[in-house]
Design a protein around this nucleic acid. Sequence first.
DNA 1: GATCGCAATTTTTTT
DNA 2: AATTGCGATC
Length: 728
Amino acid sequence: MSDAVLSVLDELNPAQREAVETTEGPLLVLAGAGSGKTRVLTARIAYLIGTCGIAPESILAVTFTNKAAGEMRNRVQKMIGSASEGVWLSTFHSTCVRILRRDIGHLGFSRGFAIYDQKDGLGVVKEALKRQGLDPKEHDPRSMSWRIDQWKNAGVGPAAACDAAMDFEAQRAAEIYTTYQRLLVDSNALDFGDLLLLTTELFERYPEVLAHYRRRWQYVLIDEYQDTNRVQYKLVQQLAGEHRNLCVVGDPDQSIYAWRGADVRNILDFEDDYPETKTVRLEENYRSTQPILKAANGVIAHNVARKEKDLFTEKEGGDAIQIFEAVDDREEAQFVVSQILISARDDGRSYGQFAIFYRTNAQSRSFEEELLKYDVPYVVVGGVRFYDRAEVKDALAYLRLLINPADGAALRRIVNKPVRGIGKTTLERAERVSQEHGTPLLEGLRRVAEEGGRTAAKIQRFLALLEELERDIEGASSADAVGRILDRSGYLAALEKEATPEAEARIENLRELLSAADDFGRDAMGTDDDGRSEIERFLDLVALVSDLDSYDRKDECVSMMTVHTAKGLEYPVVFVVGLEEGIFPHSGSMRDERGIEEERRLCYVAMTRAMERLTLTSAQQRLRFGSRTYGVASRFLREIPAEVVDEASGRRSRSSQASDIDYSYSQESYGEDGNLDLAPGLRVRHPIFGDGVVRTVIGSGPSQKLRVEFERAGLKVLVVRFANLEFG
DNA sequence: GATCGCAATTTTTTT
DNA sequence: AATTGCGATC
């Protein structure tokens, strides 16, 4: 047994160790928050390879997010080094792409299929509605798209949906689904749901294909099993149902994806599905202090549909939970940021130790503004994704179209970017033609050009551009290909001509894309994956990886993200904000008890991310959709046991003043009139910027500001009350 | 066919 | 508040 694996085993508690050493047969690991789940998974992989002598290639480990996969890969690598490289460790979606790229030929798609994101999919739904002669105003394309996704998550194909339709409405929806699916086939494209659904279909209809993967993956590990949907469940069963060396890890209390088809029954019924299952419970929490855990346990205990479970910790003491009710969202942000500044100063914490979690992405703004004001570095994880930006998607659409000429969504996106005189009318003609002949959209466009007419020359020029690019990128790296596209299409030139700050930012984003492509090319060099080109693999990556920098966590930045994104992470100091009825729990989930319970689990997930300090905030009023709305403190706040709440932080009443709360922290430096005796030329010291000289004094009173020139950091404007300056 | 301006609509959460 | 869609106008 390798020393590295031995020492890892020594650090495990008996339950964890059992989970690692039970390598044969089905194993269910019920892992509470912070109980060392990732540790067990990684140790298990290391143990299988290092101790049991299992070939890395025969291990399949599946996670939900790329982030989780990346982290696990790193940790396994640290334990056993290069032996870890053969392990197939990735997300459900990437795994399916890999399988389909090899074997999808059986199902009538070609191996060069495109992957459509939900926006592409929405476009296809609209097209399907049009073809059915339905008015998109009466049939909301978004809800239609959502419905189709639900069907796919449940493993229901178009034919099954038609059969199951009980009324006229469902019948029509199923017809749209059918048309939608046909349009995808015409475009040689798969949406996210297809990646999973078609893989199970492939396995079902072609047992010899399934046999190949079964033979290969003798040991299967599934992370976050409580969040799997029916199709993923089926996939797992197909892969592992025979050899049954299946280890699933999860926590029913952290099931937060029911809205996208996840089915908790998958984990609750695991012991029924695999009667010989061994179950291991990890209930000791190593992450959080006593008060944090008590608070989280207190909240989750209010869920009725739940198996009783209490996490415990042996950690004694710890700060009480802080609860703050702000007057409005601005004050909420001010409070949180001031707390961060205070703690950074008094406790010597780096900004990387703080995290702000919110229910919806839109809530990040007020915090960003406030952090910006004090020059606190931050990262917003998730949110507006890099690869979702218009200019980036445009550039990638060119690439997609060149790789898969049938890709209608990509063609639609770029035919007229930059403007080349091929507009709506021409495109509609092309659509009609391609519908008549059942050909891809690009072929339709080609025929329109052959018919002649006003736009024929313009189309010809566009087609010539595509041909030229196709030749150019043959065998090129993805970075070169993107560069070539931006250049020859005139896309970059058009942006440069605009010469606006927005265009400047877009160009900057495109540069970033180039550098991402370049990085990818460097990493991918030499690794030959079924003979697919680097460009093809780059397109797979950008389709399935949400964030450019999701891998490296910036140490010096405050992290901000939605609660969903936060799952699996931990931070010393956590702020959960916006705890109001209608936001958290969210209004969309308040209709029934099931929705409320999922929101409560979400709250539980958020709270259990905290290691040392946890603060929960709400606001009495906030700006929503541009107008003021009034909120009531979330029920979850009342569910926290009173004895772990810091009374001083206060559940304060509506009438009390903002000054009740001490979030100014240089009181002592105020003069008699509450103002400082400040004048230009005064020497000051700032905790972050260091030494500087006051240049200008702006205003007076609590909002008094200084313009200070720092030796290192340059010119900054600081609010005296918050800036925590030392004088003299 | 392009461009401008107004209106509607948006906010759940993500691969 | 900000993005998207639509219609009127050039």
